[in-house]
Nucleic acid binder design. Structure first.
Lengths: 203, 203
DNA sequence: ATGGCGTGAATGAACGTTCACTCCGCGAAC
DNA sequence: GTTCGCGGAGTGAACGTTCATTCACGCCAT
């Protein structure tokens, strides 16, 4: 009668991620309430019915998407942390984001930021995401300076969150007009903040 | 037979603004696609049919709302420009925005920013809004330094846009966790940027 | 023949928008 | 002074569409 099992996403481990990747553009273009399940299913290349087998509701999609980005980010940071020069790696990642890296990410973040103001569940996972990035930044700084991560986190937590905020804000700007002067100003502020941490941590 | 005249919004000059004020909260809470015309009409205290007499479509509401904010901002700047100490006035306005000033403004901006990425019409008026604020800032700086507005605009346009971006980004953060350290960092950056302009302009 | 993957028509609610309608204040006509 | 007609303010049911979600049903490897 009722063949609906509480299976969350067991069908395939990679499958969900692949679907999210396909959906991404559609979501960025039309927004959360703007894109219908029919749209999303079509973008994922499957029928509506089957689509519901992977995501039990519309809300779940956003959560999964942020979770997906979070996992990706964690992977990136893991690679950076293992490299010889982590600070350069971070700088490169930031530059990549500022200088045109995936224009649709900005749109997506704008949508997600707006959604986070409405749905507490999304706000929560979104907060976790920013927290994770900030913590990873702090880990790099602590390792660079040889200081205890706890001390660095207490002293420079706000600096890390500031950098995250700057990158996010810069990404959310429209890409039509590149505005290199503004980008330079943002990048300069990030550099200043970075050196504020590393300089002080060196003492 | 057809009593439909092309009257856009002639019914009352202040009426539209009052309706927008009432709608504001509903819009900030549920978003553009999230709030229905029925919701908005109820928030405005009138029937759907009558509501359509003031705004011909849903899109028109957002445009009108941004226009309304723009007019308000222009009034604020006009007052600041006429005061004895414009720089202090600007600082006060910025602090007001950062330290809790109207929490729903942040939500609204998040919604509008997202909407601007979808609808070109909204992107246009939104860009005008930021441009206007930046120009007003530059006018203050030019007047303070006694320099030609054109020169100041060319040299420090990006600085003004940077400040606008910072204030906007700060306002969009969730208000649940105040994070005073981060706020201080933002405020400090704004101060630095301000003095970069005024110091250089003084020469 | 069992069970997971996949389909897409069906469903009822809710959407944006329209429209035929009521209400009321007011100046003209008587 | 009463009546009348006009037009704008206001109403809410109705319309056609689209929405999120469900479900009865194929397909195919095991």
């Amino acid at each position: 009668m009722n063949n609906l099992l509480p299976l969350p996403a067991n069908t395939g481990p990679e499958r969900g991620a692949e679907i999210l990747g396909r959906i991404r553009t559609a979501f960025a273009e039309k927004g959360f309430d703007g894109s219908s399940m029919q749209d999303l299913a079509r973008a994922a290349g499957m029928s509506v019915g089957n689509f519901y087998r992977y995501f039990p509701s519309k809300d779940a999609i956003v959560e999964a998407m942020v979770g997906y980005d979070m996992a990706e980010m964690e992977r990136d940071f893991a690679a950076i942390l293992e490299s010889a020069d982590p600070l350069t790696g971070i700088r490169a990642k930031i530059c990549e984001r500022l200088n045109g890296g995936c224009a649709e990410d900005g749109r997506l973040w704008a949508e997600i930021t707006a959604a986070a103001h409405r749905k507490p569940q999304i706000a929560r996972i979104c907060g976790q995401m920013e927290e994770l990035v900030a913590e990873n930044l702090l880990t790099v700084f602590a390792r660079l300076a040889g200081t205890s991560p706890k001390v660095v986190a207490q002293r420079y937590g706000a600096h890390a969150r500031f950098i995250v905020m700057l990158v996010k804000a810069a990404a959310m700007r429209k890409r039509d007009a590149p505005d290199p002067d503004l980008t330079a100003l943002i990048l300069g502020t990030i550099e200043t903040t970075l050196s504020e941490i590393t300089d002080a941590a060196r003492d």
